[in-house]
């Protein structure tokens, strides 16, 4: 069944990640009984303005996984062009597969069933360091990032510190 397939796949990923954690994030389940709801902690990548931050996020997988992408949402307050004001992550690989109705992205840039929690999070981590402001999820953040990079850095710096204080 599709359901079994997805949960099996996710369970395997969880096991792998626990045994061989990937640099930069830690992943687990919010509730041990629900394999579709993950929580992750992203450790702010070094040598970026997010360094030192500890950012919590939730991943919600659809039953159709891996045919459809999960949704990712930061629980920790973020300020990034590709993270919406509500914390939702907006990167091309998490977009529904198929051709983009707006014509922004190629199908190859969008969700592919080969993506795992690990590849998603690695993409998100690289996104943190390297925002894409072509289709921003947070217009204000994108504008600031483009036009007042110093302010942007300051704001992120504050959030990094805040994320530590919340621990």
């Amino acid at each position: 069944m599709a359901h079994d397939q997805s949960s099996l796949l996710l369970r395997k990923q969880l096991r792998d990640l626990n045994k061989n954690p990937v640099e930069g994030f830690s992943a687990g389940l919010i509730d041990d009984d629900d394999i579709f709801k993950w929580e992750v902690v992203i450790i702010g990548p070094g040598d970026t303005i997010f360094e030192g931050g500890v950012f919590k996020a939730h991943l919600t997988f659809p039953k159709e996984y891996p045919h459809r992408p999960p949704k990712m949402k930061f629980v920790t307050e973020m300020w990034h062009p590709n993270i919406g004001p509500d914390g939702s992550v907006c990167i091309s690989i998490l977009h529904e597969p198929g051709d983009d109705k707006y014509g922004y992205e190629q199908a190859s840039e969008r969700w592919l069933p080969v993506h795992t929690v690990e590849t998603i999070l690695l993409s998100v981590i690289s996104m943190l360091a390297d925002p894409n402001d072509e289709s921003p999820a947070n217009v204000d953040a994108a504008k600031m990032w483009r036009e007042q990079p110093d302010d942007f850095k300051k704001k992120v710096g504050r959030l990094v510190r805040k994320s530590q204080d919340e621990l």
Binding site: S26, G28, E39, V54, K56
Partner: peptide, 9 residues
Amino acid sequence: ICLIFAGKI
């Protein structure tokens, strides 16, 4: 010290 395991602090 802040320890993180399995997505949890």
